[in-house]
Every structure is written in structure tokens, then in C-alpha cells.
Design a protein around this nucleic acid. Sequence first.
DNA 1: ATTACCTTTGACAATTTAAGTCAAAATAAA
DNA 2: TTTATTTTGACTTAAATTGTCAAAGGTAAT
Lengths: 103, 103
Amino acid sequence: MESLGIKIKQLREKHMLPLRTVAAYLDIDQAILSKIEHGHRKASREQVVKLAEYFKTDENNLIVIWLSDKLAYEIQDEVLAKRALKAAEKKVDYLKKSKPLAK
Amino acid sequence: MESLGIKIKQLREKHMLPLRTVAAYLDIDQAILSKIEHGHRKASREQVVKLAEYFKTDENNLIVIWLSDKLAYEIQDEVLAKRALKAAEKKVDYLKKSKPLAK
DNA sequence: ATTACCTTTGACAATTTAAGTCAAAATAAA
DNA sequence: TTTATTTTGACTTAAATTGTCAAAGGTAAT
């Protein structure tokens, strides 16, 4: 059960890098990166991709963590959260099948 | 595989009501309701609850449709959508267990 | 074809939410 | 204690949402 913030912080500390350095690479203020690590701000998709590249870690894995954070955050207060997620899966299946060449 | 817009439209037509009437009940312009029915706008949670009451239909069911629409919409373009949904389920499980009394 | 009604669309405005900067306070290390 | 780093909060800017309004498109009845 990984959250993106914790994951990023672990990666950054493993590489012994200060927020300043990583934030500079992402072209944002270090304050924002700190907030992302603590889950007080969301990262953008672009930022996640950049981070994966920067730390040479699997991009897909990071994207899944980031997406699932967003989804879970969006419905965490809903009693019907699980039912909604199940239903969403079916909808996604349907969309994938009905327009497999889209976009 | 129901979408909220279609569901609402069906309910409204079953009751032979014009957009105007239902929109007035929701206290919004009929243009917005039209857009909601077509999926060009999202309904708010309040609006969904009001609609369930108005049409005397199961509120939970309508909420699940509404929530799953939102979730599916948010990740429909992601290749990793299904993986993310599965991961989100686990996160939701975890959150429910760790703070079961949280409001 | 005209009238009357309902629905849909798009341009625009207002409001809300999110994303960012900056500086100061808190923390940790040297 | 001084130097680095991290965290926090007040404030600004940018972007996304949500709504209004008016015009255009459909439909059915006459």
C-alpha cells in the first residue's frame, strides 16, 4: 500500500538528495515537493513521469501509485466507495472494448 | 452499464416531465440538466440525492452510478486504468480499516 | 407553413479549486 | 551556535467548474 508521497521521499533519500535538487529538476519550488511528499498537494502526471525518469524507476509502477492515490482520495469518504470502484471497472472495460483505437 | 445521464433521462421521460420542471426542482438552469443528461457536465452529489428523492428511486444506486461515472471518466484515457482501480480498492480497504470511525 | 413547446448548444461570466511563489518558522546536522 | 534542510502558512496567479442567457434546432399539432 504505497502512496506516491512516501515513495518519492524514499527514492529521494536513498539518493541522498535534498528537496531543492529534485524540485529544481521538476522546475517547481521545493515547498511544493515537500507538500507532495506529505500528501498535501497532488503531483501532476508530467511530474510523475519526470520523477520516474530522474530516479530511473519503473514509470508504470509510479503512475499506478499516483492514479490510485487520486482515485482513493476522491472517494475515501464515501460509504459506497467499493461498490463504485467495482462499477467503474466495468465501465472502463466497456470503454476499452468499444473504442479500442481511440486517442 | 448505466451512466447517470441516461438514467436520469429515462426517469424523467418515464414521468413525462420536461427539463424545465426537474431543473427548477434542482434549482438550476434547464441547460445544465440537459448537459448532465448528455454527460457534458457532471452532477453534484447534492443534485444526485435530490434526484433520487424526486423520482423516488434508490439513492444508493444512483450514487454508485454517479461515483463510478466520475471514476471511470477520470482514468478512461489511462492504459493503466484497471491496475489503478485495483490498487485504489486496496487503499480504500486500508483506509476503512485504519480509521473506521472517521467522519 | 406557422405556432407553440421542448431540447440542445455555445458564448460568456462568476465562482471555486488547485498550483505556485515567497518568506519565516521549525528541525537536524555540523 | 551557525549552517542546511525541511515544513508551514499567507498570499497570488492560473485553471477548471459551474452557472446564466440567448439563440438555434427539433417536434408535433393544427
